[in-house]
């Protein structure tokens, strides 16, 4: 497999002071070149925070309390100034959750492409313009929209533009935070098809954040499931679908099967709410324990750690670790 493209080690992100909200806790994650990783979990479980932390976009009151992020074999968290500026977008791009607001309302679409190119490359204007058209074509947005302002585009188009924007400099990794959540199902479908089609043509890794497990299972190579700021399970997509390990994943899968739930974006298989992530409300045991249908005594007081269950799967659950895996 070679060295991974991205290696996140023991990453913890806190909102506020040390007694604040622990939105990401001790997360370990690796990503290989060209891999499509889905990151799923209910909203509020820390997915965006993790994605932002990897992209170096964490701002006060949030801060990275511990951990390292190694990207392309160097320490991403240690980069500053020009080095960080060049790492961004040339190697690591993002598509934001609310893509609708990610475009500067006072700049035409093409200017928002040009400023990246003129600050990262020495391409002549003609080449820059060519590139804009090429990218817009790739995401199926007509050329004439290049000179429009964002408010003149529909939501779906804006999100396509945001995706096109992320690919200008052909980065090795694109982090997409719920890129299609705000769109209706049909538009969402066409954008994802488009994304898969683009990925066939060129190689880049993706971290795709979504609360929709069904959708992620369709498009991702590997899926990591987050709960209460932690990764509780990670497996290749087919394997996770065929044999989910964590009770939380099972509950999520069960609601995927129910068409009503998908339409209304809820999880009927899973009563209750995700826990509060304040330091003083985190108990000693498994964070999923209060909602878990399979728990035993140990789960209440002892916290399971993420442990390998097969060649490519990890889970953090006491129950599962006792069972033999029939792989």
């Amino acid at each position: 497999m070679g060295t991974p493209l991205l290696d996140v080690h023991n990453l913890t992100v806190v909102y506020g002071r040390t007694d604040g909200v622990y939105a990401v806790r001790d997360v370990n994650l690796t990503l290989h070149h060209g891999e499509f990783l889905g990151l799923v979990g209910e909203s509020g479980c820390g997915k965006s925070t993790l994605a932002y932390a990897i992209a170096r976009l964490i701002k006060p009151p949030a801060h990275i309390a511990q951990g390292t992020v190694t990207f392309r074999e160097h320490n991403l968290l240690g980069l500053h100034g020009e080095a960080l500026r060049h790492e961004r977008w040339e190697h690591l791009a993002v598509v934001l959750q609310s893509g609708m607001n990610a475009l500067n309302p006072l700049m035409t679409i093409e200017r928002q492409f040009f400023d990246v190119m003129s600050q990262h490359t020495r391409w002549p204007m003609s080449k820059q313009r060519e590139r804009v058209y090429e990218l817009l074509e790739m995401v199926h947005v007509e050329r004439r929209f290049a000179s429009c302002y964002p408010h003149q585009l529909s939501g779906g188009m804006k999100q396509r533009v945001a995706i096109a924007l992320s690919m200008i400099l052909e980065p090795e990794l694109i982090i997409m935070d719920e890129p299609t959540t705000a769109l209706d199902v049909v538009v969402q479908r066409t954008i994802l098809d488009n994304l898969m089609e683009i990925r066939k043509a060129r190689e880049f890794a993706v971290i795709f954040v979504s609360h929709d497990l069904g959708l992620v299972l369709e498009i991702a190579d590997r899926v990591a499931v987050m709960y209460a700021g932690e990764i509780v399970e990670a497996q290749p997509a087919e394997q996770l679908y065929a044999q989910p390990l964590h009770p939380y994943t099972r509950a999520l899968l069960k609601s995927v099967a129910d068409p009503d739930d998908i339409r209304e974006r809820r999880f009927s298989g899973l009563p209750g709410h995700p826990p509060d992530l304040h330091l003083d409300s985190i108990g000693p045991g498994c964070p999923f324990y209060p909602r878990c249908t399979e728990h035993e005594d140990r789960c209440r007081n002892e916290k399971p750690t993420l442990s390998p269950m097969g060649p490519e799967s990890v889970v953090s659950c006491w129950i599962r670790r006792k069972e033999p895996v029939d792989a």
């Binding site: 976009l57 500026r85 961004r88 040339e90 475009l103 990246v116």
Partner: peptide, 9 residues
């Protein structure tokens, strides 16, 4: 946030 992520000056 996006502008920053874009590595603009």
């Amino acid at each position: 946030v996006l502008a920053e992520a874009k590595g603009l000056r």
